[in-house]
Amino acid sequence: MPISPFGNPASPQAAATAQLFRFVLVLGAAVFAVVAGIIIVAAIRFRHRPGQGDPAPDTGRPGIEVVWVGAAALLLLVIFIPTVSTMRAVDPPADRRLPDLVVTGHQWWWEVGYPGLGIVTANEIHLPARRMFLVHLQSADVIHDFWIPSLTRKMDMTPGHATDVWLEADQPGVYLGACAEFCGVQHAWMRIRVIAEPEEAFAAWQQQQRQAPSPPRTPDAVVGASLYHEDTCANCHGTGIGPDLNHLAGRDTLAAGLMPNTPADLARWLKDPQAVKPGSLMPNFHLSDADVQKLVAYLETLR
């Protein structure tokens, strides 16, 4: 699974950054080699030998100082120039283009909306490979940070200060990301994934997301559906307080990347969310095992 930003860059932006990093790394290693070399050679060649007195004082020459100040400035200029061009490559201006995606950070999950397509989902982003999406970032509570290492730069999601970032994947695949600004007790489990797909697969996904899920058929699922409404689940899930669940069953993970999306894990979550993700904003409803089973049956129909 591609997670390393410099081992596996998977977008033009990440590739440009990786190249800049390799360049800076080589320069940095050279500088360190010089300094370490001086230290090691001096330690060997200029160690005190028995009977040796104090060496003659050499308090320096302004000429040498000017030379190495100049050399340092030159080195920094050499780093600065590709820095500017890489910034342009990674973060070109949005030019009043309407965002393709609106991602809202919540404690501790991601609300993902496609304004042009009328789709709302959570914790997963689907996008067609090789198409550049403009992502509008905002926060519903504290500062979060959107980061998919293989694909794009970090960008803070600050309440009161919306931002934009470009998102693109070279190849279809699953790309993992995480919130990168400490946002409270479950910051560690605010993970996100980007699923890049060929155009046809993306179109199919879109289609499915826009359709209402088919009504439940099995008896357990029917009971589960009515429990969903009686137990006030819809008060949070569907109003933006909790993640939208209309197509929950199609997602890879639960609880923002904490566990895989299997019926057993879903049951574990419903039984006691606080035991699975302590501090999360979903209270423990003290559901009976039977109720949990029926709710799971219902939720599994939401594709």
Binding site: G28, F32, I79, T83, T86, D91, W147, M155, A180
Partner: peptide
């Protein structure tokens, strides 16, 4: 010196955009 070099690497802003908060 090592710490100083990695510090300079952050000033190449796109690198910071990848490695800050890590």
């Amino acid at each position: 010196t090592i710490g100083g070099i990695t510090g300079v690497s952050f000033t190449a802003v796109p690198i910071d955009w990848q490695v800050e908060d890590t």
